[in-house]
Design a protein around this nucleic acid. Structure first.
Lengths: 147, 147
DNA sequence: GCTGAAAAGTCCTATAT
DNA sequence: ATATAGGACTTTTCAGC
């Protein structure tokens, strides 16, 4: 899949606002709407565009503490943990990493009490290390070219 | 801001597909399009809806290695690091955390050589610990109610 | 706060270059 | 591979409940 300057511009604008009208995209890149629609279709078909997501502000709904948790899974519990973790509403990311503390979780909780309660639920599967997010300097970057 | 069952359903569908047509949303929740448009507007005004993003598959563009890097910032370098990190194209997230290794970065690189090159650029600011993402069990969760 | 209908705007398809 | 134009569809506005 070839990403020329025009496609990068389209990708950049779609990353900034997934609900932008084709017409406005077309005007910005200097092509007609059907052409832009076709380019987007090809980017979708090539799976370069993965999905159009709406990001919601959970802290506006009372979930004001963001946390990262690493967990060193107890021997033999990996499969059960992976099944369980997809059912935990507080957890928005779960990555298996290289290294000793093999799982990295991102979650969101209302308050310290809620965090402790979450930790208790997770501690069944391994040893936890919990860190609060004090501040996010970057969270969700827009890619606008090769690097 | 009150999130009733209908608003949760709207939020859920928008999270799954930010480009869904109002008409289809309206049909799904059993209201008219203008009503749904008004509800979405209010969710945007209340900043519950943060943004509509297009997620792109960087590995389709040759960036196939995802990494997490923790960095223990050298004394006095925090400000300079925070300025620098926003200019690094490989880094998509940067969070300041509680605990010893105070910064957590997420990034994407083409190959191990590219990773080493990134590490060298970052090592100026502190001690690094780099982990590869082997597998993402959850990455970008859809919230569909309170928990 | 919701509906329904009409106006405004956007998108799609076909045709042409 | 891109542009234009008409018809179809979607969104928005507004009067009324």
């Amino acid at each position: 899949m070839k990403i020329d300057e025009v496609n990068w511009k389209i990708l950049k604008m779609l990353q900034e606002n997934a609900r932008i009208a084709l017409k406005d995209l077309a005007k910005e890149v200097g092509l007609s709407s059907p052409t832009v629609a076709e380019r987007i279709q090809k980017l979708e078909d090539a799976d370069v565009i993965n999905s159009y997501q709406t990001k919601i502000n959970l802290d506006k709904l009372g979930y004001s503490l963001g946390v990262y948790i690493t967990i060193k899974i107890r021997f033999g519990q990996t499969q059960r943990f992976e099944e369980y973790i997809t059912t935990v509403p507080e957890i928005s990311e779960c990555h298996k990493l290289t290294g000793r503390d093999c799982m990295l979780l991102r979650g969101v909780v209302r308050d310290p009490k809620h965090l402790e309660e979450l930790n208790i639920r997770l501690a069944v599967y391994g040893e936890l290390t919990t860190s609060l997010i004090l501040n996010s300097i970057i969270d969700g970057k827009i890619y606008s070219g090769h690097f």
